Computed example of a mutant assay.
Amino acid sequence: MRNVTLTDIFQHPSAQKYLNRSGLVHAIATAYHAFSLAKDFGVDPDLATKAALLHDIGHYTWYTNGQWDYSLYKENDIHAIKGAERAHKLLIQLGEDPRKAKEIALAILLHTDSYLPKGQLDLLPLQRVVALADEADEEPGGMHHYRSLDIKTALSRIKKLDRLVDAQYETENLKHSV
């Protein structure tokens, strides 16, 4: 049983604000990729899709002379840190289990190493799923953040993903009850 659905998250005003800022199409596509990867990595699809949906909510837009400055963004970016904090706060406000909220926040924190000193991270499976899902939808120059989608279609896609996660849980419960 899930305390909080993707639809609950999506409909929250702060999620709306930050998902639109960071790229709603990218967030939804990344959540779908995470759902697909979750089974391969033995990861809870609920945690994977939530972390993937929220992975970029910490983005800040970097502009020079009124124009998006990708190099300035890459040089100064700490969106994963801010996003982990925002996601944790949002999930707790919505009633998510605190342990799950922490796992999701940590996956968001570690979905990219762009802000870390060079080195190799040893990611846990959920963290790896979110990082791979993000990479699967990336476009050169950060253009994946600028695809657009109307709110009605976005909500429809989120609800469909909620049904897929619920169906996965039902399948797992049937396996365990036999």
Score class of each variant (00 low, 15 high):
112 T>D: 02
120 Q>D: 04
134 D>M: 05
103 E>H: 15
64 T>C: 02
102 K>Q: 08
90 L>Q: 04
90 L>I: 15
91 L>G: 12
64 T>S: 03
127 Q>F: 08
94 L>V: 08
70 Y>S: 11
110 L>P: 00
76 N>F: 14
127 Q>C: 14
139 E>L: 01
119 G>S: 04
135 E>P: 02
110 L>C: 03
132 L>T: 14
62 W>D: 03
82 K>G: 13
84 A>P: 01
129 V>M: 15
88 H>P: 03
126 L>R: 00
62 W>I: 00
85 E>G: 08
72 L>H: 04
75 E>H: 03
76 N>T: 00
100 K>V: 10
93 Q>P: 01
115 Y>E: 12
68 W>C: 06
63 Y>F: 06
70 Y>C: 05
132 L>D: 15
130 V>Q: 01
92 I>Q: 09
87 A>K: 03
79 H>Q: 10
103 E>G: 09
93 Q>G: 09
75 E>I: 14
127 Q>Y: 07
71 S>V: 15
121 L>I: 13
135 E>S: 13
65 N>K: 01
125 P>I: 03
104 I>R: 02
113 D>M: 10
133 A>K: 02
68 W>S: 05
106 L>N: 11
95 G>F: 08
114 S>E: 14
91 L>V: 00
109 L>A: 12
96 E>P: 01
97 D>P: 00
66 G>L: 12
59 H>Q: 10
127 Q>G: 09
101 A>G: 10
56 D>A: 03
70 Y>T: 02
93 Q>E: 12
58 G>I: 06
70 Y>N: 01
141 G>K: 15
140 P>R: 15
136 A>C: 07
63 Y>P: 00
122 D>C: 13
104 I>T: 12
104 I>P: 04
75 E>W: 06
114 S>H: 13
137 D>S: 09
108 I>H: 01
105 A>C: 13
102 K>I: 15
89 K>R: 14
58 G>M: 03
66 G>F: 11
124 L>P: 06
98 P>Y: 06
126 L>P: 09
80 A>S: 11
58 G>S: 04
95 G>H: 07
73 Y>E: 03
95 G>C: 13
107 A>I: 15
140 P>F: 13
78 I>C: 06
110 L>K: 10
90 L>G: 07
89 K>Q: 11
134 D>N: 11
141 G>C: 14
131 A>D: 14
69 D>S: 08
141 G>F: 13
81 I>E: 05
118 K>E: 04
87 A>Y: 02
116 L>Q: 05
76 N>Y: 09
118 K>Y: 14
131 A>N: 06
104 I>W: 02
139 E>G: 02
132 L>I: 13
112 T>P: 01
58 G>H: 01
103 E>T: 12
76 N>I: 00
66 G>H: 10
138 E>V: 13
98 P>C: 10
132 L>R: 14
77 D>T: 03
91 L>Q: 07
110 L>I: 13
106 L>K: 07
72 L>T: 00
103 E>Y: 09
123 L>W: 10
140 P>K: 15
102 K>D: 11
78 I>A: 06
92 I>W: 06
83 G>A: 11
104 I>S: 04
72 L>R: 01
